[in-house]
Amino acid sequence: MLNHSSQPDVLISEVGPRDGLQSVKATMSTADKFKWIDALVAAGVREIEVASFVPARLLPQMADAAEVVKYATRHPNVTVMALVPNLRGAQAALAAGAHKLTMPVSASRAHSLANVRKTPEDMVEEVRAIARLRDELAPAVKLEAGISTAFGCTLQGEVAEDDVIRLATLCVQAGANESGLSDTVGYANPAQVRRLFRRLRQELGEHAGAAHMHNTRGLGLANCLAAWDEGVRTFDSSLGGLGGCPYAPGASGNVVTEDLVFMFEAMGVRTGIDLAKIVAAREPLAVGLPGEALYGMTPDAGLPKGFAQQP
């Protein structure tokens, strides 16, 4: 039995209920979402991105966003996070009681226009407006600007590293508490991850945020380890590897939460997440999305003989 009272070494931020669900065609029922969130919390997950506040006509999977946020906030000691692409979404997320807002700010101009119909510069001003709203209504709420397509883009191709660091810096100057880097389309490699996160942390210090990696080309865990080596301590992942981006063709699959937890725990890096229980959390996910493919090497292979998770 894990001792969750001890401070873990890393924060695994589960993004499946948002990033995962908005990337599949089926719509999980609200009741099934509740059961999935309950199972994640029972496993020791301490931060969950539960919804995206976008028009239901665009993403019917997120039509119950306010209801899901309100339910999730009943769990003590869990940070409930919501994605907000604009000021209207932020107003709705704050009204629902979200503890943390995350904004997608794409370093690729082509992806930004396709995803939110705004330029990266427009999105910095959106960050500024949302930060002002947050300061006025709920100063305790954290605001994260995730720099998407930070490592390359299926629409634009190469994304200049200077553009990525400049955009992250502008977002923090505009009022974001932190800015992390997202490999939205799975282009990143470990050397690139080391280089960019080193620059980000030199530039932003304590305001440098999470690593959000995709496993599109099988390098998700390697890239997370590279980010860990550069001092990153918050990692986004998705149970069963669900996720992608509707506006980034071929961008399949977030890093699998179960595999990420196993990697760190096997290294002696405490996640605060019970491996057996996080694997068990796949059951309500499978029930809520019948027929949807779930990924993960650890759930399939099981734990090594004699492996014991340290308290």
Rank of each mutant, 00 (worst) to 15 (best):
F151Y: 15
Q22E: 08
R166E: 15
D135M: 10
D122N: 08
A31V: 13
A65G: 07
R217V: 10
A129H: 09
R282V: 01
D236T: 07
E230P: 00
R109E: 12
R233F: 10
V78G: 11
R166V: 01
P76F: 09
A222W: 10
E14H: 01
A210D: 02
A286Y: 02
I12M: 13
V116D: 04
R282I: 00
V15Y: 09
V287Q: 14
V78N: 05
S112C: 13
E125F: 13
H111P: 06
V193N: 04
G253A: 13
P104M: 00
M103N: 09
S108M: 06
R46E: 10
A222P: 05
P246V: 00
G220F: 05
V232N: 04
A26C: 03
R195Y: 12
E49V: 03
G288A: 09
E125C: 04
A138Y: 03
P290F: 05
A90T: 02
A174S: 07
H207A: 15
H99C: 06
V68T: 15
A227R: 07
M28W: 06
A226M: 13
L2N: 12
L181A: 07
T298A: 12
Q91Y: 04
G97T: 01
R109D: 06
V261T: 12
V54P: 10
V80C: 07
S52F: 02
G241R: 10
A93C: 09
